[in-house]
Design a protein around this nucleic acid. Structure first.
Length: 763
DNA sequence: TTGAATCGCGACTCT
DNA sequence: CGCGATTCAA
């Protein structure tokens, strides 16, 4: 950077930082020291304020590395990073902008060893890993797993309230009614806690609570971070739970430069311990706090905002607020009462087609929202038929797929040999002739010696002591151990993507899918496809973080969510739950399934739970910029049966003048006299073999994947290719499935790429 | 041990 | 209805 630019920097800053901000926003951006609460209504530009405020801190000479910003999703973090980067340049990279969980993971990778129980290479277990481990604890205690199905939820809740197993046990002694049950839960919790340590693993809640514990028990570590992060901002503060709240409190205790942003009306994470009181009591925590309200909405039309306000005013427990907009009046919210869930999906598909073909709307300007993930299926089926490109955000996360979890388990085992959960998952995948009986024997032996299972099989002295192992099995286990050890030896030498390819190959995982009978199976193709996406995501990661280790990549994989990955390249309709839509906005929104018994969800038994449902509805409505459709089905299929449903109370809470109501019943053609008849016709038409409807959908999906696939291309030197990231190139050499490609971009140069994995097309 | 067939139960939201 | 867990035969 030249001196000239340097001198112009601060004027430039002023312009960029304050340009287009309204007075309260300016005030917030200017307030740099001390505690600050920004009460920011939906669409009031809070992200912008947070971003500009950080830029302003930097403009005032605060070092980038002194800044910590916690956001709700990784996507929001990345967006903020890139916006700040645009304002002030590369130095912004040194700021820590991340989610609570990523922040904690980073702290723990550095400092977890002060506890003496974990090592830095710990594994992060996702929800299903920890659920499985808990189940194992239950059966090992000789208890009936069916009676304890919601123990994972209980434990998670206790952890987010910073109650550990010992404290829970103590608490359980005082419980009078149902004390038996609680006592047993306490036992399960205790065993689970111990197993996590044995496995050198942390679950999601541990990431927060263990970090909090370190800050509490080791003031010297805490102070290190206090001195480092002298300026802290927390987004979506209304959704923090006790653990997160305490964590923030520790961090901010010394300098008290803490800025929190939030909106109590958008608190929708009560189920994981979020406590609105954290934001409502901010002034009590920090009596000198400055409070700024952002009440001008820049997102939605007057009509949509009035609808949202009409709904949320029905909440009693709510701070006074007046959100307004200068935007145009806009169209009324359209409410369509459909016959069934099927016709609802059909309506949405038709309307989307109409918008796209007649009104020049792009697919990616449209979102379909629902309360529960299960509702997405109907839309998916319909959209496939109608050729509407879509993206389901959430539900089955990409990294939750079997094949991905398998490979991740291999990688985890390489990192952390103590990880028995991952070991047991993959030791017989692909089949190595090691069945459950042998594994139980192994596990029992390892547990009795206080060893990790992998330690046993990688050490002949131990392995030969395991009772009742046949020589065949022993041999297989030794081969497995040797394979893992040899992969492990190369883990620091190979770049992450190459490492993954090596695992796929050496483990025999890939060939088990591509060779023999498996290869002809329908889902093998899509699994291989997913694995190739996994490798490309590792390539993306390696590009973004050239220094990134396998550990860093696994961190990333454990903490990334689908919302983080909404891509902008292809125009697709987004399908997601309201929760996943938080923080996002779309010109056109379909809010679907607005029925009693679904939204509000029947589990909302108390007044405060119902108020949370209403806030979820408020969040949904306020995602829309111009067009909002609300739909309800008169009849919905659940567990294979159809039920009559009633329109959600929230629909009636929308002011009449904001709502245009349509009923599908009156506009049906003669074929559709009754709902059941309509469904019969629907089945016949689209699924000739409707006993196998699911397979039909899979087939359609596979077809789509196939048509895009680059398989069976006859590659020749001289072929021109286009790579998703690296642009144009020429094939220089072909060896089996590996292409040597010279890219036009001199910075990329020559690369060796696997045809199966590389995101390339022949041109 | 493995693969196929059957059984039984279940779904709210997410890091 | 669909999935995962369990059961059973080879």
């Amino acid at each position: 950077m030249t001196n000239f630019e340097e001198t112009n920097l601060s004027e430039n800053f002023q312009e960029k930082i304050f340009d287009g901000l309204n007075p309260p926003q300016v005030e917030a951006v200017k307030c740099l020291e001390g505690p600050l609460l920004i009460v920011a209504g939906a669409g009031s530009g809070k992200t912008r304020v947070l971003t500009c405020r950080i830029a302003n801190l930097l403009a005032h000479g605060v070092e980038p590395r002194e800044i910590l910003a916690i956001t709700f999703t990784n996507k929001a973090a990345n967006e903020m990073k890139s916006r700040i980067g645009k304002m002030i340049g590369d130095t912004a990279r040194a700021t820590w902008i991340s989610t609570f969980h990523s922040f904690c993971a980073r702290v723990l990778r550095k400092d977890i060893e002060v506890l003496g129980t974990y090592t830095k290479n710990f594994t992060i277990y996702d929800a299903s890993d920890s659920k499985n481990l808990i189940k194992e604890c239950i059966t090992d205690l000789g208890l009936d797993a069916d009676r304890f199905t919601h123990v994972p939820k209980i434990i998670s809740r206790e952890k987010s309230n910073l109650v550990n197993a010992a404290q829970y046990t103590e608490k359980s002694l005082e419980v009078k009614e149902g004390g038996d049950y609680v006592t047993q839960v306490a036992k399960i919790y205790t065993v689970y806690e111990k197993r996590l340590v044995d496995n050198n693993a942390l679950d999601f809640d541990d990431l927060i609570s263990v970090t909090e514990r370190i800050f509490r028990e080791h003031p010297e570590v805490c102070e290190k971070y206090q001195d480092r992060f002298r300026y802290i901002s927390i987004d979506e503060y209304q959704d923090t739970n006790l653990a997160q709240y305490r964590l923030v409190k520790h961090l901010a205790a010394k300098y008290k430069n803490i800025c929190v942003v939030g909106d109590a009306d958008q608190s929708i994470y009560g189920f994981r311990g979020a406590d609105m009181r954290n934001i409502l009591n901010f002034e009590k925590d920090y009596p000198q706090a400055k409070i700024i309200r952002l009440e001008q909405n820049y997102r939605s039309t007057k009509m949509i905002l009035a609808a949202a306000n009409g709904v949320i005013t029905n909440n009693v427990m709510r701070p006074e607020k007046n959100l307004w907009t200068e935007k145009e009046q806009g169209k009324q919210v359209r409410f369509i009462h459909c016959v069934s869930d099927k016709t609802e999906a059909a309506f949405v598909a038709r309307e989307i087609k109409k918008l796209v073909t007649q009104e020049n709307v792009r697919y990616d300007e449209i979102a379909v929202l629902f309360r529960t993930n299960a509702q997405s299926r109907e839309f998916e089926e319909r959209f496939i038929q109608a050729d509407i490109p879509y993206l389901v955000v959430g539900s089955l996360k990409f990294y939750d797929r079997k094949e991905i979890k398998d490979i991740v388990s291999y990688l985890r085992l390489l990192m952390n040999p103590r990880d028995n959960v991952s070991f047991l998952r993959i030791v017989n995948v692909p089949r190595r002739g090691v069945g459950p009986i042998n594994l139980t024997r192994l596990t029992e032996f390892a547990t009795s010696r206080n060893l990790a299972i992998f330690d046993v099989i990688s050490n002949d002295e131990f392995l030969f002591q395991v009772p009742q192992l046949s020589p065949k099995v022993t041999q297989k286990l030794r081969e497995f151990a040797a394979m893992i050890l040899s992969l492990s030896a190369s883990k620091d030498k190979l770049p992450v993507p190459a490492m993954i390819e090596a695992v796929l190959k050496e483990s025999g995982y890939l060939s088990s899918l591509t060779e023999g009978e498996e290869a002809t199976k329908l889902d093998s193709a899509s699994r291989v496809d997913n694995l190739s996406s996994f490798v490309s995501s590792a390539q993306d990661f390696a590009e973004m973080e050239p220094e990134g280790t396998l550990e860093d990549f696994l961190n990333h994989v454990a903490l990334i969510t689908d919302v983080d990955e909404i891509e902008e390249e292809n125009s697709r309709v987004s399908l997601m739950t309201v929760h996943a839509a938080k923080g996002l906005e779309y010109p056109t929104v379909f809010l679907t399934g607005m029925e009693e018994g679904l939204f509000p969800h029947p589990s909302a038994a108390t007044v405060s739970a119902m108020e949370e449902e209403r806030r979820i509805c408020y969040v949904a409505i306020t995602r829309a910029e111009e067009n909002l459709y609300i739909t309800a089905a008169g009849e919905r299929r659940n567990f294979g049966k159809s039920y009559a449903t009633e329109v959600s109370r929230f629909v009636y809470e929308i002011p009449r003048e904001c709502l245009a109501t349509f009923s599908e019943r009156h506009s049906l053609n003669s074929n559709f006299r009754t709902a059941s008849n309509a469904e019969a016709i629907h089945e016949q038409k689209y699924y000739p073999d409707h006993r196998n409807r699911r397979a039909a959908v899979e087939k359609m999906k596979a077809k789509i994947i196939m048509s895009a696939a680059k398989e069976k291309i006859d590659w020749q030197p001289g072929n021109q290719v286009r790579h998703k990231k690296w642009g144009l190139g020429t094939v220089m050499d072909v060896q089996n499935d590996t292409l040597k490609i010279l890219f036009a971009n001199p910075e990329i140069g020559e690369k060796n790429l696997k045809t199966k994995f590389a995101p390339i097309e022949k041109i």
